[in-house]
């Protein structure tokens, strides 16, 4: 019997797909070894009201640590509570989401607990208490199968790769107030610039519309924004490094080796040639569409569907057709 803990990440008091995916993975692993899945949520006062919903994804017990100092993420405030919760639980594995927050938090937890961490995995299993993972290495040019020889095994899962699965059952929520010395924090967030309301980050989006140098200039991005909007609220804009370096788009949108790694359901590459460093960031997308006027562009080598043509003709038409389709749904 082995219990598994999911660290369920909230942002602005909301538990999103990162939390649901982590809990679903924890539930699957726990079930395979006859244990139960627990979830841990940290946040400001009142966050517990959002946490109950995690029961639906298989968390039997949901611990919610509420504190003013946990309302926003600060690793110095968060790490101690996470470590204490893991220590008190005798877990065989702990699942984090490999989001910006998870990638920042999980290694610190691993160091404090003195156990290894497998980051950004695309596959994870547990049998006989041993956790094995598959994770991309060399920017997705190879996959490593690893066995983690420590308990608890710490794992962070790549967003969008694992299915969040609803199941019958409700989790029991218990709220606690961790002790945090807010005055002793050695790092302080002095400014937070949120994205505009309702936008998702490219690394977590289920659909990505990405533009490259073929877009000709920043003034044409309303074309891509139109397509993004037509594809719905889970869609985000991405960019190649060439356009980020040119200052057309912010670095936060860059996809690739020196940008973000994305694994959306749908990736649309518009005017992007498909250099290896770009492919490194998006080759695990489920479906890839390329729009490029050069039939020999390497992007067509990884695209499931391609249109050879001038993006300035193709994109407006695509936006129209998608809008029409969605209007009919």
């Amino acid at each position: 019997m082995a219990n598994v803990l999911a660290f369920a990440e909230q942002r602005d008091g909301q538990l999103g797909s990162a939390a649901r995916e982590a809990v679903s993975v924890a539930a699957r692993l726990a079930e395979a070894s006859g244990g139960t899945a627990h979830a841990l949520v940290l946040g400001g006062p009142g966050v517990s009201s959002a946490a109950a919903g995690l029961g639906m994804y298989g968390a039997a017990a949901i611990s919610v640590g509420e504190h003013d100092a946990l309302a926003d993420y600060n690793p110095e405030a968060w790490v101690g509570t996470v470590v204490d919760q893991i220590r008190s639980g005798d877990y065989a594995a702990v699942i984090f989401a490999a989001t910006t927050l998870g990638k920042d938090l999980a290694p610190r937890v691993a160091a404090h607990l003195d156990v290894p961490l497998a980051s950004d995995v695309t596959g994870v299993d547990m049998s006989g208490g041993t956790v094995t993972v598959t994770r991309p290495v060399f920017s997705g040019k190879a996959f490593a199968n690893l066995e983690i020889d420590a308990s608890p095994a710490l794992v962070s899962i790549r967003p969008n790769v694992f299915q969040a699965t609803e199941q019958a059952g409700a989790g029991e929520v218990s709220t606690f107030t961790p002790e945090i010395d807010a005055a002793g924090l050695r790092l302080r967030v002095v400014e937070r610039k949120g994205a505009s309301e309702g936008t998702v980050d490219v690394a977590e989006a289920s659909v990505v519309v990405s533009g490259g140098r073929g877009m000709k200039g920043p003034e044409h991005w309303d074309l891509l924004e139109g397509l993004r909007a037509a594809l719905g609220s889970g869609a985000a804009l991405g960019a190649s490094r060439a356009v980020v370096d040119a200052g057309w788009r912010p670095h936060g949108e860059q996809v690739g080796q020196t940008g973000k790694t994305v694994a959306p359901k749908l990736y649309i590459a518009v005017g992007i040639s498909g250099a290896v460093q770009h492919l490194a960031g998006m080759r695990t997308a489920k479906t890839i569409v390329a729009i490029n006027r050069d039939a020999d562009a390497p992007i067509f080598g990884v695209a499931d569907y391609g249109i050879v043509g001038d993006l300035f003709d193709v994109v407006p038409r695509l936006t129209e057709e998608v809008e029409a389709l969605k209007a009919g749904d």
Binding site: P116, L146, Y305
Partner: peptide, 27 residues
């Protein structure tokens, strides 16, 4: 190291893509 490398593999080749067509008419 407490992480054992069981094996390394190359990514599954993506099924050969398809050029749907040329220009806006292919949309």
């Amino acid at each position: 190291s407490r992480v054992r490398l069981v094996g390394l593999s190359e990514p599954p080749a993506r099924a050969a893509g398809r050029i749907v067509g040329e220009g806006a008419d292919a949309v």
